[in-house]
Nucleic acid binder design. Structure first.
Length: 500
RNA sequence: GCGGGAAUAGCUCAGUGGUAGAGCAUCAGCUUCCCAAGCUGAGGGCCGCGGGUUCGAUCCCCGUUUCCCGCUCCA
């Protein structure tokens, strides 16, 4: 397989559009930044990955360390919730960073990460510094530009606390002239909307920036209604929305995306064991859907980079072509502690403790969260499958793991002759009861194989003259292009054996 | 949000101040017992959108949107 590069992305994007996997949203209007639509094959691929995740999590959850299957149930919560839930989660206050741009240095700063030295006498210019600036740098800069004043002549104030009218006299951290800093602008990652006809602050609501909140909000409902016992998990798949500053890299960072999240509730003492368990399980999942372990990277997120709620996070990263030879995040497995349940308990006034009847104790479970982007997963599958092969007519094929392929098989009469078509139709009608399959009658066989290669169909079953006499068809393998004969009655079993 | 580049058929791209082309794809027919995407033909674009200059703009200028690259950002 050819080495991945940033250029590969262009070819992948073109193929995705040409063959109906992914289109720009609002394409005929010129698109809209950060939004993408899934076409006929894209939606099949996405559903396959989604269904596989759901099956592995909710329908047939993994075997636990004690040898018994663990317990996971699903929910499907609303995208819009009571806005107070986002205050509890920290999204309203937490990701509302005021940003400042410098017109001179073209740099952007978080206003709460920059401090300003303001002259105590109110005269002359003020100096802005990054919060991590070295004391020696501060002094040398003052010596150079402060006209005889020293550090003791200044008051320190964070930039986001400085009134906007004073900005004209501030020299930015990387600037030489005063007045180049723009006024702080709020960058809130959450989309907001209004519930009801009248638009006003009192009915402002948010589109969820992640699906997990809907799980925590329903923790009590699930426990009360489903006979689940800690340890157990609640899974959810759904859309989430983030007003990304810069959507980039095709569907990798988009403003509307789809998540598959599991919140695993357990006792605090068992967290390390379950954490390792989930890292292993999730790795197996990605391998099973066609991502080799060699293309994955496990990043133990450094303490200083951890989200406020997490004491440990492992990012499962994939070698996306735009990141190669590096990696970018595909899934995050986070220990969220009891942060969410505690927060929602406080903000809602509803007890979210768990009562263990056997041990007769009451506690707030800790949470391990394997959270992955379904749409990022789709991109990873496409990138992984994309294989250049100059020797074949299509020049490229998609090497999907058969279970993930949008079409599991194509049924092709070798010619459009009367004898071949009815047999192919019969096989098609039989197979489509169980699998997504194509029946393609038109044009010569080479063209049809090439077309199936390009959309990643793993098997082509071809009806020829021998089929008429002995009911066998050829199976043509996408990756090897090799052919074998099997009986028509065995075709369904053949496919079934290979798609899991 | 900043800087740079790009925008012409579904895709990849040529092209010229006088209202457009190729290859592939799609469709029809032919051919073909298996990679021959071979042969013949057809459909398809007010050249991203809006302004300006000009007798006339796909081409020159400005704005805008989208995409790509680099920053920034990514709780």
């Amino acid at each position: 397989m050819e080495k991945m590069s940033a250029d590969t992305m262009k070819d992948i994007v073109a193929l995705c559009k040409r063959r109906g996997f992914i289109f720009p949203a609002s394409d005929i209007y010129g698109g809209i930044n950060g939004f993408w639509d899934y076409g006929p094959l894209g939606v099949e691929l996405k559903n396959n990955l989604r269904d596989r995740w759901w099956k592995d999590m909710v329908v047939t959850p993994p075997i636990g360390p004690d040898g018994a299957p663990i317990e996971i149930v699903g929910v499907d919560s609303s995208i819009i919730q009571n806005p107070r839930c986002w205050e509890a989660s920290g999204h309203v206050g937490g990701f509302n960073d005021p940003m400042v741009d410098c017109k001179e240095s073209k740099k952007r700063y978080r206003a709460d990460h920059v401090f300003v030295l303001i002259p105590k006498d109110g005269q002359g210019t003020s100096f802005a510094f990054d919060k991590d600036a070295e004391q020696s740098d501060i002094e040398s800069r003052l010596k150079k530009f402060a006209k005889g004043k020293s550090a003791s002549d200044f008051e320190k104030e964070m930039l986001d606390k400085v009134p906007a009218k004073m900005f004209a006299s501030i020299i930015g951290p990387d600037a030489k002239e005063p007045g180049t800093l723009t006024e702080p602008r709020q960058f809130n990652m959450m989309f907001h909307t209004y519930v009801g006809a009248a638009a006003g602050d009192e009915n402002k609501a948010y589109l969820r920036p992640e699906t997990c909140a809907g799980i925590f909000l329903n923790f009590k409902n699930v426990v009360d209604s489903s006979r689940t016992r800690v340890p157990f998990g609640i899974a959810q798949i759904g859309k989430a929305f983030r007003n990304e500053v810069t959507p980039r890299n095709f569907i990798f960072r988009s403003r509307e995306f789809e998540q598959m999240e599991l919140e695993w509730f357990c006792e605090e003492e068992e967290v390390p064991m379950w954490f390792d368990f989930w890292v292993e399980q999730r790795t197996k999942f990605w391998e099973a859907v066609g991502i080799p372990k060699a293309e994955l990277h496990f990043l133990d997120v450094a303490k200083e980079d951890l989200a406020h709620y997490s004491s440990r996070t492992i990012d499962v990263e994939y070698r996306f072509p735009f990141a190669a030879p590096g990696f970018d995040e595909l899934e995050g497995i986070a220990h969220r502690g009891s942060f969410d349940l505690t927060q929602h308990e406080q903000f809602s006034g509803t007890k979210l403790e768990y009562f263990d009847q056997a041990a007769n104790k009451r506690f707030t479970p800790h949470v391990i969260e394997p959270s992955t982007g379904l749409t990022r997963g789709v991109l990873a599958l496409i990138c992984q499958a994309y294989t250049v092969d100059e020797s074949r007519p299509s020049g490229v094929y998609l090497n999907f793991q058969p279970g993930m392929a949008p079409k599991k098989a194509a049924i092709l009469p070798l010619t459009a002759k009367e004898e071949h078509v009815p047999l192919a139709q019969k096989l098609y009608m039989d197979l489509r009861e169980d699998f997504a399959v194509d029946l393609d009658i038109k044009q010569n066989i080479g063209k049809r194989y090439a077309r199936q290669d390009e959309i990643g169909t793993p098997y082509c079953f071809t009806v020829d003259n021998d089929t008429i006499s002995d009911q066998t068809v050829t199976v043509r393998d996408r990756n090897t292009m090799a052919q074998n004969r099997i009986h028509m009655d065995k075709v369904k079993e053949f496919v079934k054996d290979r798609i899991r």
